[in-house]
């Protein structure tokens, strides 16, 4: 049913369910009332003939298509993402067909049910909502026939006669208005309120930071952890004697210029060109604290980077530089203490 214009008039007739003639709609059709202008409201579904033919809605087909989409979605989620995230777990293939079957069954059902529901919602909402309030007597069992007709037409008289003949208990006219009924604004506010509450509920998961500083997500990656308080440092990893040859120093200086100087500065004082844009001041490498660190500690910092309170402040160079190269950089940094 289209929107009510100012030139329309709404005719509403109430019938006893037992007295409602099934031929009425057919007669109205013959009187030239278009299908879309008729509406029958009832307290329960009517299955008899002689009713308004509802516009077709291919809900079954939509449900089947949605189910198939859900099936594909399930295969992609359970199978496809497993290929993208190929982590071995004991004895099971990365993409396990029975598992994909189970998951895609559920997503198929989910999609079919939700899409059916949403389509139904859209259809219900697309009904004329600014229509006059429904007669409360419908809920006590009466049937209401609502007709939207062009006002001052001859048809109006004819229709009224037909309705009277059919045994209408009551016939009322109603001039259509274009004003929005007061309930709609309230509707919108209530809906908005419910959405805000739902959104706030989404934020409930708390943000604790337990074990945050050890994000090891690659297999066998070193934990990016700072030693627990009170732990005993171990130097055993430093087996290599530092043979500071000039060659190695030059190589270290070259790598330092390429990889480190933009933050730590060419002279290592932490005044590189990008410092202005950093939140954390890079360390002054000539600082006695830095120079006091063992070669192993410096090597670890270059290898794994540095994190302060869970935030990465220096990147890891494990992937960028080989062990040899990292070593020469450390040798160079050590050499910065000699002025």
């Amino acid at each position: 049913m289209g929107p009510v214009t100012e030139h329309e008039i709404t005719v509403r007739a109430l019938f006893e369910p037992s007295g409602y003639p099934e031929s009425l709609v057919e007669k109205l059709r013959q009187a030239g009332v278009p299908e879309g202008a008729m509406e029958i409201r009832s307290p329960l579904p009517l299955h008899e003939t002689g009713l308004v033919r509802p516009a077709p809605l291919p809900l079954h087909r939509i449900a089947i298509i949605a189910g198939l989409v859900g099936l594909v979605l399930g295969v992609v989620v359970a199978g496809g993402t497993a290929i993208l995230y190929p982590i071995m777990t004991g004895g099971k293939p990365i993409v396990a067909p029975p598992v994909v079957g189970i998951i895609s069954f559920e997503t198929m059902m989910l999609m079919a049910i939700v899409t059916t529901f949403v389509t139904m919602l859209i259809r219900l909402r697309s009904e004329r909502r600014d229509a006059v309030e429904r007669d409360p007597r419908i809920d006590d069992g009466l049937i209401e026939v609502v007709l939207s007709l062009p006002s001052n037409s001859v048809q109006l008289q004819l229709v009224q006669t037909l309705l009277k003949q059919a045994g209408a208990l009551e016939i009322r006219h109603h001039h259509a208005t274009s004003s929005i009924p007061p309930g709609v604004e309230l509707d919108r506010r209530t809906t908005a309120g419910m959405l805000v509450v739902a959104w706030l509920l989404c934020g409930v998961p708390a943000c604790s930071r337990d074990m945050q500083d050890q994000s090891s997500y690659q297999s066998q990656e070193a934990p990016r952890i700072h030693s627990p308080k009170g732990s005993v440092p171990r130097d055993s990893r430093l087996l290599r004697k530092s043979l500071t040859t000039q060659e190695e120093l030059d190589e270290g200086a070259r790598l330092f210029r390429i990889n480190c100087s933009h933050c730590h500065g060419r002279d290592g004082t932490g005044n590189g060109p990008v410092v202005a844009y950093l939140k954390e001041q890079p360390a002054d490498l000539r600082d006695p604290y830095v120079q006091g660190l063992s070669e192993a500690a410096l090597y670890d910092t270059v290898t794994y980077g540095l994190a302060v309170e869970g935030r990465d402040v220096m990147p890891a160079f494990q992937g960028e530089l080989s062990a040899e190269e990292r070593h020469s950089v450390v040798t160079y940094v050590k050499s910065l203490s000699q002025p």
Partner: peptide
């Protein structure tokens, strides 16, 4: 409670 709605 129109016919359309009941049918849907």
């Amino acid at each position: 409670g129109t016919q359309n709605q009941w049918q849907v």
